[in-house]
Design a protein around this nucleic acid. Structure first.
Lengths: 224, 224
DNA sequence: CCAAAAGTGTTGTTTATACACCCATGT
DNA sequence: ACATGGGTGTATAAACAACACTTTTGG
């Protein structure tokens, strides 16, 4: 006989959903999982799931990401809480949405043999999404673009060491517009958020690029 | 026999809490209610309460404000969701925090005879607050100050018609620092967010001040 | 020597800051 | 007439935007 949990007034279910971004081959991508069960069986959805009784919201988001995609060590930030009474046809489900950023280099998705496989999708060619997830994705992207303008958020898409042109390419991808590279280099250097490692990246068939890394140890610095 | 609500996995309770700001006599104030029941009986707390099954989160916040304080027609915006498993000693309670702004002129609090009276408190002389409400208040104030710099949020503290010096005083209150008034007037006029009503405020024992009102019909405009 | 990306300065424009006096009214 | 807050301009500094050529490497 299954255990039940009883309350003397109605309680909604609470989930976290995560919009995980990365930049791969110069395109903004995000991670979706294919739903195995109804509702929206077979549709693509954001990774996420129910909050456990003794679990912090951030912890829940990280756990769900790890369980559904095998990915850990992401930059994670709360986005917004969606609580439309009818957003899930089964029962009242309030979702605390997060967005997360991860560098794509050396990133392995969990073996994707089963039906609940996680896959990267190009941001500008997304499939139809389950629930109100399209709305969540839209808001996450707005926040990503807005916050990139005044913080080092975008650094999270790159490995520890990177060239300034790689960083610029990330900004161009996020903001969806070209940036003047002299102005970009001046800006990024004047803010003091990168330090020259002294190393260069060789082996390309052109002039080697200096390697930089973020000056701040971890997290995201706010500029201006 | 009381009705119970049964689920086959644990569900947290969900509340909304509202940090309602106003500016009264040149000071930033916020509305607190005194708790009648345990936990924290007798302590001051943010107005708020449980989300009903068929109720949107925003609607819940507005309803709780109305019920506990009699106040309606506020500017309301979601702030952050707090879900520390131990933030409420009774059971797991996740709260979706909001902040709200209201003009203080002609504002009547609900009759405050009972123990659950709502009262305005000066922001820089707040009593100890119940739960994690002090943390919520701190975040709300940071957001208020930050967003005032690039939006017309602060207009919400004033009635429809106002003088530029009244508006400046509101900004000085929020930002906690003096502003040069020639620069302020230039800024606010160049952004085009106010229009001259042609009216003036007379009866003061000094030169009458021109009255302005927000150019945008309602809501908050983003500048820059 | 060629292709490819790395790297570098100057100028004009816009935006932010600092600062002090006259004006219109009510009493 | 005087006290009170309302109202105005200019000069300097800082931030931002536009723009094109030289350098270094690998093949």
């Amino acid at each position: 006989m299954p255990q039940t949990y009883n309350y003397n007034f109605p309680h909604p279910a609470v989930t976290t959903d995560i919009v995980l971004f990365t930049v791969r081959d110069g395109a903004l991508n995000l991670l979706l999982v294919r739903r195995a069960r109804a509702p929206f069986a077979g549709a693509w959805a954001l990774p996420g799931g129910f909050v456990r009784p003794q679990e912090d919201l951030d912890t829940c988001a990280l756990r769900e990401l790890r369980e559904e995609t095998g990915i850990r060590d992401v930059y994670l930030e709360q986005l917004y809480t969606f609580g439309d009474p009818d957003r899930d046809p089964r029962e009242r489900v309030i979702t605390v949405a997060y967005y997360a950023l991860v560098a794509s280099d050396g990133l392995e998705l969990r073996a994707s043999t089963d039906a609940e496989a996680a896959q990267w999708h190009a941001f500008d060619a997304l499939p139809k999404l389950a629930f109100d997830h399209a709305r969540i994705v839209r808001l996450a992207h707005e926040r990503l673009a807005a916050k990139s303008r005044y913080s080092t958020l975008a650094f999270q898409f790159l490995p520890r060491d990177f060239t300034l042109n790689e960083l610029q390419a990330v900004y161009e991808t996020i903001l969806q517009k070209p940036i003047d590279n002299r102005n970009f280099r001046k800006w990024i250097r004047d803010t003091g958020v990168v330090s020259d490692t002294g190393e260069v990246r060789r082996g390309m068939r052109h002039r080697p690029a200096r390697l930089y890394r973020a000056s701040h140890t971890d997290g995201v610095a706010i500029l201006r």
